[in-house]
Design a protein around this nucleic acid. Sequence first.
RNA 1: GCGGAUGUAGCUCAGUUGGCAGAGCACCUGGUUGUGGCCCAGGGGGUCGUGGGUUCAAUCCCCAUCAUUCGCCCCA
Length: 434
Amino acid sequence: MSKINIIRGFADLYSPESALYTLMEDTARRVFGAYGYGELRIPIMEYTELFQRSIGAETDVVQKEMYTFPDRKGRSLTLRPEATAGIVRSYIENNCHAREEISKFFSFGPMFRYERPQKGRMRQFHQIDCECLGAHEPQADAEVLLMLMHFLRDLGLTELQPEINTLGCGECRPAFRKVLSDFLRGLDPESLCENCRRRLETNPMRVLDCKVPSCQEHTAGAPRILDHVCADCADHFSVVRDILDRSSVPYTLNPRLVRGLDYYMRTTFEVVSTAIGAQGSVAGGGRYDGLVSQLGGPEVPGIGFACGMERLALMLADKRTAEQATSAPDFYIAVLDAGATDSALMAAQTMRAAGLAGELSFAAKSLKSQLRQASRLNADYCLMLGQEELAARNIIVKHMGSGEQVAIPLVSLGDWAEIRHDDKLQRQRKGNYL
RNA sequence: GCGGAUGUAGCUCAGUUGGCAGAGCACCUGGUUGUGGCCCAGGGGGUCGUGGGUUCAAUCCCCAUCAUUCGCCCCA
């Protein structure tokens, strides 16, 4: 039979790397919980229209990257490419705005985008997502960003800094778009890269964050959205900046920062790392005041962010956090005769019931290789069990450090394990206070 | 959707101007050891990603295809 492969761009996640994801989730629950956010679990599939109407029908995500297919009754379903749309759908559907003035959610799970996989980019990837709905005040913007940085700091990623910008609102952005468009058309078309010449028609604001150096040079004198937003947007943004200035969180003002999803407005931010390859955007978010009503809900403002777990994991792996998650076992049981395997399992259960951690060899391989395995696992003790020991109702216990060994009656193995377990707890306590 | 790199033992990878397929680790056996990590000797294991082509002969050259990976694009 031929074997069946995993789907391209999907991944099996093994220990110890999987422990990084648990760490991220645990940290998220603790930090976001401290800000009054509750965990929300939503489906990974929605009707396709939800994403078309929220992300934007013209965006690359919707146009080329969604896993969309009909269900058995012909309705178009889509595996979620991001979390905000589903959260807002749920918010509207459950009348959250009528129950509480402000709703704060965090959520994590898999997202799906049909892209070419590369470092830090999978077709099934995972995001941590936070949304604050119901607050239009700029303080909410600042708090969300401070919370994100708090989360990253608690993960040990202290070197990360956010870039921030404002995108204006429905009132002032169209005017800026025109000013920018006029400026770009005034340039020599040859001075822009091929992509930017196309963007000029589809989405002129995207030209601003083009990474091609020559584009950067030629658009250096481009109008800045900061100078063209309306008074309300300017006031809003200056309050956000003022709070950040007064907090201890450093940030960079990046007037060229724009967002790929259509629903963003006003405050926008992104955390980029240069340490993990080309896909360096670790987290991104911003305000989306029109989205709830656009999806058929009430006029409720919102702000939030998404954080890419694969990219965080790349940075955490650099810090060797994964190794800390795994600990050495207390024992390993070597089986000297095949007939002793079930007794070895019972012995292991006795040890585990007493609080010790360890494994047994299921196969009665040579003692040499089993002892080697015990030292490879860095076990404290190796227990040996064969026909001879069974006949004597004993088990041989060998301390791997000193090499000392004793025969312990099988009936009192539990007592022995309990003593060992108490010793271990004492050592740990001592270690903590020292 | 577009480019570059890679695909050889369970794992990490050498290799041949085209001529019987290699190492380290792992595994197994034996020796040494106070039944153990080191060391020594031996052993098992490979349709050289897949399908075509060129050739007396292809793992090597050519074409196609699949997979992995790094970029472009896009995004978290």
